[in-house]
Nucleic acid binder design. Sequence first.
DNA 1: TTGCCCATCAACCCTTCGGTTGATTCGAGA
DNA 2: TCTCGAATCAACCGAAGGGTTGATGGGCAA
Lengths: 208, 208
Amino acid sequence: MTAPVQPIKVLLVDDHPVVRTGLRALLEGFEGVEVVGEAADGTEALTKVHDGIDVVVMDIEMPGLDGITTTERITAQNGPPVLILTTYDTQSDVLAAVDAGAKGYLLKDAAPEKLRRAILDTAAGKPTLSSEVAALLMNRMQQPRLSLSTREVELLAQLATGATNKQLAKSLFISEATVKTHLVHIYQKLGVTNRTAAINMAREQRLI
Amino acid sequence: MTAPVQPIKVLLVDDHPVVRTGLRALLEGFEGVEVVGEAADGTEALTKVHDGIDVVVMDIEMPGLDGITTTERITAQNGPPVLILTTYDTQSDVLAAVDAGAKGYLLKDAAPEKLRRAILDTAAGKPTLSSEVAALLMNRMQQPRLSLSTREVELLAQLATGATNKQLAKSLFISEATVKTHLVHIYQKLGVTNRTAAINMAREQRLI
DNA sequence: TTGCCCATCAACCCTTCGGTTGATTCGAGA
DNA sequence: TCTCGAATCAACCGAAGGGTTGATGGGCAA
């Protein structure tokens, strides 16, 4: 690899000024990377994503339009690749990001060098996951018996809000009977006997 | 106020390199403020807190020794004033920080100018709270009726592990009837209708 | 002293949850 | 093609949770 003729143009999306400043300071120290824009939320990001951006570095938690939804919109309109840079590596966050079309998923406590590597890879269209995230996915793949189905994870997420079976049925457009069936499977897979314990276990295992 | 002869020496404590870099970049743009050290967790912070630090800017969520505990240790040994800079303004976080002896509490999405003001105030020993945090405290003071009793919090903590009423009764040395009574009171105070939602609400408000 | 809150308990009743059995449809893969 | 898992649903029943009413005793403050 020779020195790039044109620097990689990056759009930063994060609701915290401190983080945006930090990212900008870090990235401007990297050769071949140029920060060409900042956005404080998803809506602002969508208005700035057009002109020649090579990589979008995106937080998930934001007021208004969140990072997952924003990523969906960007990929839907064939926008630049998105690198998710967030605090949490729960399974539901990671899966949602991948589903939304994110090219990379990195944790905020990553070392600067890893961040640089991830941005270059993302710009090159190469999928990049931090080691923790990769381990999480590998774990999911290697233990298919113990892993929850996507539908079960969806249900679990709703469950954690305190919804009753009736509410779960309504929000997932299925019958209460099906909700119960899913719950039984979830209990079996998590090794618990009731919904409260299931939520607790799911939190421990970072499923939600 | 004239220009300070000596700049205010700041120690940054945050587990995210990105945030530390951002804070440093921001603070170095402020006149009269100098970053003299960084720490990635509470333990490291304690070793660096001695020599002539004027203000400690501290995150709460950190691996190992968290920001609240670290603040307690620092204030216990008459260390420099601590300004908490964090993402969340839940009731228990704020209360815990104040209890631990923090002089200020600011959110990470605060504008840079507010951050500068807060650091100067903290160095001068003047307590500073962001407006959201202040409103939260006011709210708590004005509505003492909504706070849970100690017994109720105890029960709530057990509840969150997934215990049934029978188990709760056993572990708290009371009858199931009493457990139910406590639960009803908890539900009323938290504005929910079942145990799962109660746990969720309690987590949101960082009561447990 | 009186009133109030907290913590404790009982009895009753209804709703919801949890577990079981059995079934259908559909898509992926051997 | 056949199999298997995922997802869907129904019906049933016992266990657990949730709501109500009513009661007792201790501590604290007006």
